[in-house]
Design a protein around this nucleic acid. Structure first.
Lengths: 298, 298
DNA sequence: TATGATATGCTCAAATGGAGCATAATTAGG
DNA sequence: CCTAATTATGCTCCATTTGAGCATATCATA
């Protein structure tokens, strides 16, 4: 039985939210995700990555979760004589630590079509037009392609589904509409990244968007105490959607996810908002329950 | 920058359901999951695994999804001079192909506490008793351990949650109640497996149980045409729960997941059941929507 | 033809979710 | 001081979904 040998590296999708903008840590002026060798010294992958991130940035990583392992060929970064296995992780960094320093880029820079907080992005019209011609270009697969485009971009009656970020990127890739796909597409469909790093980022976004709905991980992105509106804006930033304010409060409070600190904040020029803190005991009590998203159609 | 080198292998959790029993393909008389080298020849991991499974067994794999990559030390199968990276996959095999041949073991053989179809398994009493003494053994962490045990095993008012299969196994492992944990525990808490294969299986079970609720993957386990009861029994087998029959039908039908074939089956000696087939177009139409589980407290 | 068994249709109440109105507590500007 | 603007917060209403169970249909078999 032959044993496969391979180079192993770790790739991190480190997310923080500052100024209502979800940001991801990058290197090379925003062209790549931070990555490093898989050191043999560490007992576990997680501990290794945690230490390594701590060294590189000075941000402690709160939540850390394995994303996906990429080992396909055609990844543009194979080393002759072996294949590279990239194990990617999603990490959440507290807002204050990961503030607007260099290296942190808003993730909608890479996926402009994913931010629906100001309504449907205009770029979607162009995307759909280009997807249409791509679909029509192959008569055999035409119908299937149209249905797939309609579904992933919410034109099939189901409406926009923020969880499909990865599927959308993959569709655009297949259609040759992102410049990573090789065929020199105009790069106006979001900023490109090195190798398949944008796909990895899309994987992280999709995973995080899905996760916040059934697991209280948002709090890893928040400061110790916060107002409910601040919490809402953070979730909205991640989901790329706006939420119904009153229902959002109802949802959060009825789940006992937070408790009042007693203090208030009167920054934004209205009635002062109560400050809350996360009830860390719920992490033990109910790992599930989580935060559903009360949408708003504004 | 140093580059980590490692051995790479693939481990497969191949699942089929026959006779209302979820089964997993094993080697070594049920002691290990099938695994093989990561061949460099294949373009993608998936295609490599698909081919390899096809060779080993004669079952075509329908649905295939990456599970998790294990690379921690202490995995009992490291090779001197390097670490083994195991990339695990979950694969679903059609009922007929993967029938009761040798090598397929019912997965509740390994996790007897996970099957609640005949009511709460009695072994849970012993498990809870042992978890209690484990919790009490460390006064500092006592409360935390009790809460964790109560939550994962559904004693905190939230009730049994079938999705927590992995958390339950990990808790038992931590508590030293499964023989893989080293401390020669009596192996009556389910059959043990080689190295960390039982943990990988638990990962697969948990993933599948969660997945069937929001993605129509069950059909990969079904024959071409089937009755609604057969579909229900399959889902019940996977979830380890019984479902409310009428509500199950309502759920399936209102989602247009299936269509009548026109035929009927009159095997079980009652009113003949209509035969249905899966509407494959929904895979394009709505990758989500999925099958929620209408529970029944019988 | 009665009985037992399963399939299938339908009803009802409770829980959940989406939307919006009403009121409270501030700041800023006359 | 008074008013408008702004944000926070409490509450209601209604449509939909979900959990549970009753009633009827259609078969095999004795």
């Amino acid at each position: 039985m032959t044993i496969g040998f391979a180079h192993a590296e770790l790739i991190a999708v480190l997310v923080a939210v500052t100024g209502d903008e979800p940001r991801v840590m990058t290197i090379r002026s925003g062209n790549a995700l931070p990555s490093g060798p898989f050191e043999m010294g560490h007992r576990t992958l997680q501990s290794g990555l945690r230490e390594w991130v701590q060294e590189q940035t000075e941000h402690p990583v709160g939540y850390l979760e394995q994303l996906y392992t990429f080992a396909d060929r055609d990844r543009n970064n194979d080393i002759p004589g072996g294949r590279t296995i990239s194990i990617s992780y999603l990490g959440l960094v507290n807002e204050q630590s990961g503030a607007g320093r260099p290296g942190w880029h808003g993730w909608y820079e890479y996926f402009p079509w994913e931010d629906h907080r100001q309504g449907r992005p205009v770029v979607l019209d162009e995307i759909m037009a280009r997807l249409r011609s791509w679909a029509d270009a192959d008569p055999a697969r035409r119908d299937h392609r149209h249905r797939r485009a309609d579904f992933t971009f919410g034109l099939d009656g189901g409406g926009w589904n923020e969880d499909l970020a990865l599927q959308r990127y993959e569709l655009l890739y297949e259609a040759g509409l992102v410049s990573e796909a090789g065929c020199g597409a105009e790069a106006n469909l979001g900023r490109a990244m090195f190798a398949d790093h944008r796909r990895i980022l899309a994987t992280g976004i999709a995973r995080l968007r899905a996760k916040i709905k059934y697991r209280p991980v948002v709090f890893e992105l928040m400061p110790e105490s916060f107002t409910l509106l601040r919490l809402q804006r953070t979730i909205e930033a991640l989901a790329g959607l706006t939420l119904h304010k009153q229902n959002f409060r109802r949802l959060i409070e009825q789940q006992d996810l937070v408790e009042e600190t007693g203090g208030t904040e009167s920054e934004t020029g209205g009635r002062p908002a109560k400050l809350f803190r996360f009830r860390y005991t719920v992490l033990e009590e109910r790992a599930l329950a989580g935060t559903k998203l009360p949408l708003s159609r504004n």
